[in-house]
Amino acid sequence: MLSKRIIPCLDVKEGRVVKGIQFVDIRDAGDPVELAKVYDEQGADELVFLDISASHEGKKTMIDVVRSVASELAIPFTVGGGIRTLEDIKETLRNGADKVSLNSSAVQRPELITQGADYFGSQCIVVAIDAKYDEDAGNWRVFTHGGRTPTEWLVTDWAKEAVKLGAGEILLTSMNQDGEKTGFDLPLLKVVQEVVSVPVIASGGAGSSEHFHEVFTEVDADAALAASIFHYKETSVQNVKAYLKEKGVPVR
């Protein structure tokens, strides 16, 4: 049976991990490779690196990070942030990333999803969707540019379209729940799960092991992503997995 995946997410800026990470016993707490190793040892099933560099140099540095991670780790990882062209996709995957995550660029140029999927296969193309509940529409609206820009898309329509265009996975972040630590956005995940046939990664809202259990049993998410709960050592990947195992959820 396929196990449920736990995925820590690391924000990388100019080649360094940001967002106060509180690991001890690491010489260089800002080094993405060192942190990736720690999560690997804890049993992370996959990692996501989000490049939030503002400069061109920062983007170049990110490729070095990708190479280092691929050199040292034997688990799959996804790279997102600032991937805008097929060339960017090629460069990222050729340097050792297993998947790329497209967000704003996919909404702006949907053909990028298809180009990437045709070239490398759907399994390499993750479409990340940031969604926020829209009272008037009675549905969730898709936002781009780090949640700053609303789009015309409703989440179910965009998720379906992304899969049709070649997305192999959907990374779905609830803007309502993000950072709240009150649990994943189950209603949002449910509506998207119902309309797509590819794996859905739940993101936004993880605050405890119970929340992971909830998202895997109540909406059958394939994977769950979290950042701060792991970074701030509120729990560890091991603890979450031990809890899930005890509850009968298949984990590695």
Binding site: S3, S197, D222
Partner: peptide, 12 residues
């Protein structure tokens, strides 16, 4: 019953 394709993730 339908199931997801690709087979993606950790399996024993």
């Amino acid at each position: 019953n339908s199931y997801k394709v690709p087979h993606m993730g950790w399996n024993q």
